[in-house]
Computed example of a mutant assay.
Amino acid sequence: MRDDATSDLRNEVVGRVTIRDVALEAGVSVATASKALNERGRMTSETRERVRTAARLLGFRPNAMARALVHQRSFTLGLLTSDTYGRFTLPVAAGLSAAMSDRGVSVFLCAIDDDPERARLNLEAMEDKRVDGLVIAGKRIDRTLPLNLASARMPVVHVVAACPPDGVGFVPDDEGGAFLAVSHLARLGRRRIAHVTGPRSFAAVPLREAGWRRALGEAGLPPFGEALCGEWSERFGYETGQRLFGAAAERPDAVFCGNDQIARGLIDALAQSGLGVPEDVAVVGFDNWELFAQAARPPLTTVDMELKDLGREAGLTLLDMIDGKPVEPGLRRLPCRLVVRRSCGGGAP
């Protein structure tokens, strides 16, 4: 490559950069440049990388229609979601888009708000656009979108949504995330660890309870009563905190909450009771919803579901399915991550 002429050539480009410009910059034929960028043909890895570098330097953008005709693909994925607020889907979409951008694939997003007719129309729109594959993204792991995918003419993966037995799905490891949180509390010396969580009708609730119990068992600690189930809300967290830390003779010294909203409400109840967090009671949430976690006083230690990673892995798997590579059906539970802040007393800022 003519490194000394790179900046001059970039400055002289007028209009759209063509494959001929890339070939000239890389010192190869147009045919070789085309094969390198389309990952076809035989050539040395050095030549392929030289062409890619030239394309990046020149800001080359391949003609989408021509590329689609050559590969008989649209290089577009569909993302269909019922999560209209975007709490779960936006991080999934961010991970998906980041993984696809390096591969020249765009993402077409539609939200349906649990409306079967809207879902049908959006699915038809995606089929009309000939998307290569479809990501179904939800807001709970035990429900899917109101869609009939039996006749879908494309590969499908499910993210944070129910996955059919013969399908491919990605969800956070709720039990593993709860285990991380409660094990951390036990290592900090907490011995009476309660669990306050959401409705039992959610599949995530018994999984997080199981992680709580497993961590306590491995630490040689008994559960502090039964798991207290209710709403996914600050109000429920506040009301439960008032009961837990009222006139009871024995109180917990830590609480693992099923989500960040419950944890925020519980912290408010502790403050009104004159108890310090984390001095008197350590609190850990679940979700790492930064809007809640960072604004809590003190900032909330919580479990991050790594939704961007879910989106990334779902996208890469979907590309394998589109390429005809063997992909085992089933549900993949990806690891969560504990984000340590001040509410657990673990020494975080």
Rank of each mutant, 00 (worst) to 15 (best):
residue 236 F to L: 04
residue 255 V to N: 04
residue 284 V to K: 00
residue 332 R to N: 15
residue 332 R to Y: 05
residue 272 Q to A: 15
residue 308 K to D: 14
residue 334 L to N: 10
residue 266 L to Q: 05
residue 332 R to L: 02
residue 305 M to D: 01
residue 234 E to P: 02
residue 306 E to G: 02
residue 270 L to T: 02
residue 305 M to P: 05
residue 305 M to I: 00
residue 337 R to H: 12
residue 313 E to V: 11
residue 322 I to H: 04
residue 317 T to M: 02
residue 297 R to W: 13
residue 299 P to M: 02
residue 323 D to A: 13
residue 276 G to V: 07
residue 307 L to V: 00
residue 218 E to S: 09
residue 283 V to T: 06
residue 259 N to D: 15
residue 228 L to D: 07
residue 287 D to W: 07
residue 262 I to V: 15
residue 321 M to S: 00
residue 278 P to K: 01
residue 318 L to C: 08
residue 265 G to C: 07
residue 328 E to Y: 07
residue 304 D to F: 02
residue 331 L to W: 05
residue 245 F to H: 00
residue 285 G to N: 04
residue 325 K to C: 10
residue 292 F to Q: 11
residue 250 E to D: 14
residue 246 G to E: 06
residue 268 D to R: 12
residue 269 A to I: 10
residue 337 R to E: 12
residue 278 P to R: 02
residue 254 A to W: 14
residue 312 R to F: 01
residue 306 E to I: 00
residue 278 P to E: 05
residue 263 A to G: 11
residue 296 A to N: 13
residue 220 G to L: 08
residue 277 V to R: 01
residue 265 G to I: 08
residue 342 R to F: 10
residue 332 R to W: 08
residue 225 G to E: 11
residue 272 Q to V: 14
residue 277 V to W: 01
residue 246 G to K: 06
residue 266 L to A: 09
residue 226 E to V: 03
residue 294 Q to E: 11
residue 276 G to C: 12
residue 240 T to A: 09
residue 341 R to L: 15
residue 295 A to P: 01
residue 335 P to S: 11
residue 267 I to M: 15
residue 299 P to T: 07
residue 221 L to P: 14
residue 270 L to I: 08
residue 309 D to M: 14
residue 305 M to Y: 04
residue 323 D to W: 00
residue 238 Y to Q: 05
residue 307 L to Q: 07
residue 237 G to K: 11
residue 303 V to K: 06
residue 328 E to V: 15
residue 284 V to Y: 04
residue 287 D to F: 06
residue 313 E to H: 14
residue 258 G to W: 11
residue 271 A to V: 07
residue 314 A to N: 08
residue 256 F to N: 00
residue 253 D to R: 01
residue 342 R to I: 06
